[in-house]
């Protein structure tokens, strides 16, 4: 089952208080340079019980080209998941502008929040009920989506017998069946064993490769996953520190990691 209906709010454009990017004249709905995801000068803060403003995002700007698989990394508390939820429309930024190709879908870390039907194929088809599709079209979409995530042989399987990673792949298939253009995936591999980790990340990689129109943004702590990425973004303290080449970002983090481990063990 795909929860994309939660994310189908009209995209709210909030005028930035201080524009730092030049405004480009474009016709409505069109976008230059073919980006599937764009956030400009995003800020977000929440208020504590003591009526204190805590900034989480401080002027973040990102761009993800259409048809690519990018990863978002950074220390705990740097704002990665907050940024992802703003892109998904689950949170409203304090200021800044968001453009995300629709339909978009957010895949949660706990698959039991999304996989609710008794069998694999019925769960993938669940979200299609609100569209008036012929029966053959539904079957065709379900079949194609399950093939993309490598679960064709599990079509009639009870979801209770699936591993956590397999359930996540079912959730991703549900998004694909609805012709989702943007996948937003929040630390899916945190609780998975190695086989499941590879299964899920390859499912996303294959989904992006199979369709020129699918773009994915994946939050993670695992540096080894960067080898599957087309590009990456590194955040710290609510800011985008690096944006672009995945290998450079991996080297940057690994160098700091080595230095830190040496420091604390000396």
């Amino acid at each position: 089952m795909n929860l994309s209906y939660l994310t189908r709010f009209p995209e709210r454009l909030v005028a930035p208080l201080y524009a730092t990017l030049p405004t480009t004249a474009t016709t409505s709905g069109n976008r230059p340079e073919n980006f599937a995801i764009e956030g400009r000068n995003l800020k977000f803060s929440f208020t504590t019980r003591q009526t204190q403003d805590v900034p989480v995002l401080k002027d973040c700007s990102i761009r993800i080209p259409c048809g690519q698989f990018w990863m978002l990394l950074g220390p705990n508390g740097c704002g990665k998941s907050t940024l992802l939820k703003i892109l998904a429309g689950l949170l409203t930024p304090t200021s800044g502008t968001v453009y995300v190709n629709g339909p978009k879908s957010f895949v949660f870390q706990n698959p039991d929040h999304q996989v609710v039907m008794p069998t694999v194929d019925s769960d993938v088809a669940f979200g299609l009920g609100k569209i008036n599709l012929a029966h053959d079209e539904v079957r065709s979409r379900v079949s194609r989506a399950l093939h993309a995530v490598g679960l064709s042989d599990y079509m009639k399987r009870s979801v209770q017998t699936l591993s956590g990673g397999q359930k996540q792949r079912v959730a991703i298939a549900g998004a694909l069946a609805e012709a989702c253009k943007v996948l937003l995936l929040d630390e899916l591999t945190t609780f998975l064993d190695e086989a499941d980790q590879v299964g899920v990340i390859k499912a996303v990689r294959n989904s992006v490769d199979t369709s020129a129109e699918v773009t994915a943004l994946w939050v993670t702590h695992r540096l080894e996953e960067l080898e599957y990425a087309d590009g990456a973004i590194y955040m710290e303290d609510g800011k985008v520190v690096m944006h672009g080449d995945a290998a450079s970002i991996r080297s940057f983090i690994e160098a700091r990691q080595s230095a830190y481990i040496t420091q604390i063990n000396s």
Binding site: G74, P75, N76, E187, T190, F191, H221, L223, I253, R256, Q257, Y260, I261, I264, N265
Partner: peptide, 14 residues
């Protein structure tokens, strides 16, 4: 170590 970044992991392992 689940869900921790690289610095926190190193701290907890130590």
């Amino acid at each position: 170590l689940a869900g921790l970044d690289w610095k926190a992991r190193a701290d907890v392992v130590k």
